[in-house]
Design a protein around this nucleic acid. Structure first.
Lengths: 190, 190
DNA sequence: CGAAAATTTGACATGACTCAACTGGAGTGG
DNA sequence: CCACTCCAGTTGAGTCATGTCAAATTTTCG
């Protein structure tokens, strides 16, 4: 828990009472490799903060193809935002790719927490703002760069992820086939 | 101004005093067709709410190609989020495609407003949350649908936009060339 | 060691792009 | 009201980036 409070203090200042209010509204939980934090069709009941481990958020389209929307690593947030906001069935699956420890805030607790500690509202605004800005950046990259460029940029920006997840998932994240990624990697060697 | 206060009340309840605090921190402004609300390289000083008119937000890549990230119409927000948050030079341009009336909140006023009316913090969290969820949806669509499917979906979802902006801009938004969009439209007729 | 999972390889197919030429308004000015 | 230009949209030929499918190879891990 303390890890999480420390992390929060990077964004907002909490008094002792506020910190303990936060603590009483969160839960720690451990998932095994392969387990799901959210499954498409279920309601996403928590915002999930990753303490350790790694996750992937993916969408299964009508043709049965998986599309990875994002990975989650230490100190990142995860969750199907739409599903959480509206408490409606999730479109996405979130699966742990390693044993993963998380901190979770339940929907009914978060609203409660926002009332008692308005600073938390601020905190989430800040977090989501930058997640939003990053998604926009991603859209641009998909449009203005080719697959090879996107791959190399990804390797630079997220070396920790490249090392820890299978290549075919990176291909999926980049929006290309595993075969084509393989080809790209081959070219780069020469 | 009142239009904007009414709009806010859809999301949060404001007392008279709060409403007047909001009013005193916003400004109305009119832009002509072709004018820029934000230009890449400048700092984005405002969050901009569109009362009437239409805008496009686009990115100019290293090869000189424009990529439309989003359009903005009545009751939508606009702004380069990264630039606004960090008060750093903007990557994006926001241009009016018609004469456009907006409400703007300046960076220094918004922080001030958040302090005095914490509900506004809540309001922005909600707005940005759904903007974020929409961008994620867009990424999935780009990956799981081809150009023709994306075009038809766009026509269904945003008929108001299709009617009001030139075709080559829609092609740019969809991530394809104007020539290819033209071809798609031809196929669909038969 | 053996089976399953991940990656690679190669032949072929295709969606989407490029470039250049052409068409058809919508001003604009004489 | 005509001639001219400008801009958006269309058409077509050729090309390229990326996908598909199937088989071979390598890696992982029980």
């Amino acid at each position: 828990m303390q890890v999480f409070i420390d992390y929060l203090q990077n964004y907002i200042e909490l008094t002792k009472e506020e910190a303990s209010l936060v603590s009483s509204n969160i839960k720690s939980r451990n998932y095994l490799k392969g387990q799901y934090i959210v499954q498409a069709g279920d309601v996403c009941r928590y915002q999930t903060f990753i303490v350790s481990g790694i996750t992937r958020t993916f969408y299964l389209d009508d043709n049965g193809n998986e599309h990875i929307i994002t990975f989650g690593i230490e100190n990142w947030w995860n969750g199907d935002m739409m599903s959480f906001i509206n408490q409606s069935p999730a479109d996405f699956n979130i699966q742990c790719l390693e044993n993963t420890q998380v901190i979770q805030i339940a929907y009914h607790n978060i609203e409660n927490l926002f009332l008692k500690v308005p600073k938390m509202e601020r905190f989430f605004r800040i977090i989501i703002q930058s997640a939003y800005a990053n998604t926009q950046k991603r859209i641009i990259r998909n449009y203005s760069m080719n697959a090879k460029e996107r791959y190399h940029l990804f390797c630079e920006e997220y070396p920790q992820i490249v090392q820890r997840v299978p290549q075919y998932m990176i291909a999926s994240y980049l929006g290309i086939t595993k075969e084509f990624l393989s080809q790209i990697r081959n070219q780069s060697k020469s």
